[in-house]
Structures are given as structure tokens and as C-alpha cells.
Write a protein that binds this DNA or RNA. Structure first.
Lengths: 136, 136
DNA sequence: CCTATACCTTCAAGTGGGTTGAAGGTATAG
DNA sequence: CTATACCTTCAACCCACTTGAAGGTATAGG
């Protein structure tokens, strides 16, 4: 099958698939007589695996490593587990950050709602002036 | 004060401050006789404001617009409110995505914990094979 | 005066994870 | 014969910076 259909089937853009190939994440597929990329079922599964790992947030370096191991017949179990554990922790951090941020926004919007627009006496911007920093 | 102290006081890297200047987000500060950037208190407040808006996740384009308005003496209230509302919605989306992702990871880790490592019969990688996609 | 160090300067290039666009080839239906 | 919907490569762009090279400056200690 050609790249468009493969892309549709795995939920990626053709440009992303070409990028993964150029970045040596996935091996280059065969070509038709006229030079089109020609994907087999196995290639599609590989791409689906990549899409899945990427959608779980693993950096391309990890995906490349796991896939190289996997395609060379070695078990990527431990690397996958480690990557998953690392990423799960990172996700917890990101969620905590975002929840703090979201609280901050809720407060900002509440305070802003109480203000009229007769700048500069009463301005939502002043809400931003003296607060403690959110990050770091 | 020189860039290092300003950076320390606002919680930014000197390189980030230079970048903001080069990207016309903040105005260029004065210079000492020997060519060092020389920041006043007002500059530090401006940088703090930028840092705050950035840490709230607003794109540099929005920050630049808000700051240009603000420094030219106009009230950036409405743009700030709009940007904040947009970003708050985006944060809600991101949190929802991450929570779904986090559930997925919890399931993966549970399933992985139940498996031994005698690849390929029982391997955490198989956990990743047939699942529905997380995103899109 | 010399040196070590801790800053500062500019400019260019690199990062990640792709997307977008130009310029052109191909497959298929009407 | 043409319209269209694909496909190809290559280069440049996106964001928000960071990093590195090559060099200047300020200050303290010996």
C-alpha cells in the first residue's frame, strides 16, 4: 500500500512517516516500480507501534532504541518498562504542574471578573503584578 | 545592574533575556560604558511580567502584543483576559489528555507487573500491540 | 604588573518533532 | 486529453530558546 493509506491506517501524516524514515526510526519500506513507497502489513504494525509510543509521550530517541532492539529480535521488555515508568512519573509531574496552573488561572479569572475596565485604576493586569511565580 | 543579576532576580537565563530582546518582546536596555547591558528596576519589572505570562503558557506573540500595548500606555486588559481565557481552555484540554494518558499507563504497568520476562511468550511489549489509540 | 575567575559581548548553529511549500512525476477516471 | 489526487525530493520554516566559539572586561589576590 502507498504512504497515504498507511498514514490513514495508523493515524499519522504522510510527512510524519517520511520524517520517521529520514530519522532512522523506522526502516525504509520497499518501492513500487514507479518509485512510490510500498508498505506491507508488518511496516504498518511497526508504524502503529511508533505512533503508540510517541502518543504515550516517549521521545524519539527512546522509540528508536526500543524499535532497533525489537526489530533485531531482542526483547525490549526492560527498556520499554523503564521508559514507561520514567514517562509515567513525568506525566504525574506534568499533571501536577498543570493543575497548579489551572488553579492560578481560576483565581485570575475570578479576580478579573470582579473588576471593571476603567484602566488603570482597576485592571486585570494588576492581578499579574505581585503574585508569587508559578513555576520554578 | 548587569544581565546576570537581572536574570537571577526574575528567574530567567541571561540567554533567554537576550533572546527576548532580539525577538523585540522587550525593549533593549541601556548600556554601560564598556558595552554591558544595564537594567533598571523598570526593566526588571517588565522582564518579570514577561516571565509570568510565559510561565502561564502564553505564546511569545501574545506576550509581545500585550507588552507593546502596555508599554505604549494603553490598557492591555482585554487582550490579557482573552489570552488568559484561551490558555485556560487549552490547559483544561491538556489536563484531560494527560489524565487519559495516565490511566493508560497505570493499566500498562499493572499488566506489566503480572508478566514474567520469558520473552517472547510474555512481554510487556505485547501490552502495547492491540490497544486502541490514545490520541485523536 | 600578572593572572585567575567570573562575568559580559556577538553571531551562528543546534534542539525536537515535525509541517509546509516548491517543483515535478504518476495513476486513474471521464 | 485533461482533471484530480496522489506521490517524490529537498529545503526552509515553526517555537522558544540553548549552546558554543571567539573574544572583551571587571575585580581580587599575589
Amino acid at each position: 500500500m502507498k504512504i497515504g493509506e498507511a498514514a490513514r491506517r495508523v493515524g499519522l501524516e504522510p510527512s510524519a512517516i517520511r520524517f520517521y524514515e529520514s530519522a532512522a526510526v523506522v526502516p525504509a519500506p520497499g518501492r513500487t516500480a514507479s518509485g512510490y513507497r510500498d508498505y506491507q502489513e508488518g511496516d504498518v504494525e511497526t508504524l502503529r507501534f511508533v505512533h503508540r509510543l510517541r502518543s504515550l509521550g516517549l521521545p524519539l530517541d527512546d522509540v528508536r532504541g526500543i524499535l532497533n532492539l525489537s526489530l533485531s529480535g531482542q526483547a525490549p521488555c526492560m527498556p520499554v518498562r523503564e521508559a514507561i515508568a520514567r514517562e509515567a512519573a513525568a506525566i504525574d509531574d506534568r499533571i501536577a504542574d498543570l493543575l497548579r496552573l489551572r488553579n492560578e488561572f481560576a483565581r485570575l479569572q475570578e479576580e478579573a471578573a470582579d473588576m471593571t475596565d476603567n484602566w488603570p485604576a482597576s485592571c486585570v493586569c494588576h492581578v499579574l503584578d505581585d503574585k508569587e511565580q508559578v513555576n520554578e
